[in-house]
Design a binder for these strands. Structure first.
Lengths: 145, 145
DNA sequence: TTGCCTGCAAACTCTTTGCATTTCC
DNA sequence: GGAAATGCAAAGAGTTTGCAGGCAA
């Protein structure tokens, strides 16, 4: 039993919730997929692993992972909720390619510091932030020419 | 006839589209509202100004303003498309208050420069970017205590 | 006159919810 | 045994689309 499973189980127990086979398989799925995904991708993963759940269950499971902090809501694309595994994944920002959809992750400490300064200036208490740069990646730039 | 109207009209003409009373009033609405808005806010503004249009028309008008660059898609909130007037509105980023929903605009040239450096590093061609910092504003911090 | 636009309603997509049944503890 | 979870289907939001009639050019 992985560390995440222990944490999840403990979280459920404390809140009077149950560790069901469905929740177990969804946990396994988000850890396997890693990175970014949406509900459909999760649902498909489950189907391909012979553990088809109803979408309702998948939707009902996500808030648990959000609250426990295993996952966070990422950038919404075309009205679809996107999630991102945070477990063992330190904060980062995104370059989103409009050509191929690829997401490149990066982190720049100086940008982070400057953001803190901005917040200080406005006496704003930060919970989180998202920086997304949209454009065309190296490969797609070649194709476009 | 304002400059925007001329530009819009010319854009429509060039594309074999028509300058209808509905499009005229929607243009007036987005200029009057200014800043950030969603389709509902736009629809309500129209209703309050005795120019009720069908939502379909409002939805069909937005892509025109997007393409012409009068407006850009802003951060999605709870699955609703948000727009932002860009006309006469230079680029800026956002502090979003989770308490009262207020949006504070800011711009930091050093952050912008660092973003450019990141893109250069990945040979990424930027189209645009969004930086949103979520948290609690000065006023809401007081209330929370 | 031509064919783009509009309003209406129906369709669509993503997400949530009510309910009967099952299942964990 | 009793509360909580599941699957199903229906309901809800927000957005898009097909169609018949209306109107700009």
């Amino acid at each position: 039993m992985g560390k995440q499973e222990t944490v999840f189980r403990e979280y459920l127990r404390k809140n009077g919730l149950r560790y069901t086979p469905e929740r177990k398989i969804v946990l396994k799925a988000i850890l396997s997929i890693g990175g970014h995904f949406d509900v459909d991708a999760l649902y498909d993963w489950l189907k391909q692993n012979d553990k088809t759940l109803s979408k309702a269950t998948v939707y009902r499971t996500m808030p648990l992972f959000l609250e426990i902090g295993f996952v966070k809501e990422s950038l919404r694309s075309q009205g679809r909720a996107q999630y991102e595994l945070t477990f063992g994944h330190e904060h980062h920002d995104h370059l989103i390619c409009l050509g191929c959809g690829k997401i490149i992750e990066f982190k720049d400490d100086r940008i982070e510091e400057l953001q803190e300064l901005v917040c200080k200036k406005y006496e704003f208490h930060t919970i989180d932030h998202r920086l997304a740069i949209r454009g065309y990646c190296k490969e797609c730039r070649k194709t476009l020419q």
